[in-house]
Computed example of a mutant assay.
Amino acid sequence: MKLTITPKALNWFKSEIEVADGQGIRFFGKVYGSTQVHEGFSVGMSVDTPENILAETTEDGLLFFADEADEWFFKGYDLVVDYDEKLDEPKYEFNEA
């Protein structure tokens, strides 16, 4: 799994989310909603301390990651995190790995 954060998404995270030293922004599968490849599940995010990292990227000093516990959700896909200007929130795109 490859994790990509667009510059617009990075700006949103930096202005909206406070992350303490040693923590990062974790993406995970959560019940309810849907994605372009999952029915009944959507992407959740939280500020968390990384432990068993499945995928990670650091952008402008900010860590973004997915945990091995969520491999079932991301298996076979790369995740692109972008910014939705109309909703003023992140949007997620799954691409086949």
Rank of each mutant, 00 (worst) to 15 (best):
M1I: 12
K2F: 07
L3A: 04
L3K: 03
T4C: 07
T4N: 09
I5F: 01
P7S: 08
P7H: 03
A9T: 09
L10M: 10
L10V: 08
N11V: 15
K14C: 12
K14H: 15
S15V: 15
I17Q: 04
I17H: 01
V19Y: 00
A20T: 13
A20N: 15
A20M: 12
D21Q: 09
D21A: 12
D21H: 10
G22E: 08
I25F: 02
I25P: 04
I25K: 02
R26L: 07
F28H: 01
G29V: 02
K30E: 01
V31E: 05
Y32Q: 13
Y32S: 10
Y32C: 07
G33K: 02
G33R: 10
G33D: 03
G33Y: 00
T35V: 07
V37L: 05
V37S: 07
H38V: 12
H38P: 05
E39Y: 10
G40T: 01
G40R: 00
F41W: 12
F41S: 12
F41V: 10
S42F: 00
V43N: 01
G44I: 02
G44R: 00
G44Y: 00
M45G: 04
M45D: 02
M45T: 06
S46Y: 01
S46R: 08
D48Q: 11
T49S: 08
T49H: 08
T49A: 06
E51L: 10
E51M: 11
E51N: 09
E51Y: 07
E51C: 02
L54C: 03
L54N: 01
L54T: 02
A55Q: 14
E56P: 05
T57C: 06
T57G: 03
T58E: 05
G61S: 07
G61H: 04
G61P: 03
L62K: 06
L62A: 06
L63K: 15
L63F: 08
F65R: 05
D67E: 15
D67Y: 11
A69H: 13
A69W: 13
A69V: 08
D70E: 09
D70A: 00
D70P: 02
D70G: 00
E71Y: 10
W72G: 02
W72V: 05
W72R: 03
W72N: 03
F73I: 12
F73Y: 04
F74L: 03
F74W: 01
G76V: 14
G76K: 08
D78Q: 14
D78N: 15
L79E: 04
V80W: 05
V81T: 09
D82H: 04
Y83N: 06
D84Q: 05
K86T: 12
L87G: 10
L87V: 11
E89C: 14
E89G: 07
E89M: 12
P90M: 06
P90G: 05
K91R: 14
K91V: 14
Y92K: 03
Y92M: 08
E93Y: 13
F94A: 11
E96P: 13
A97N: 13
A97S: 09
A97G: 15
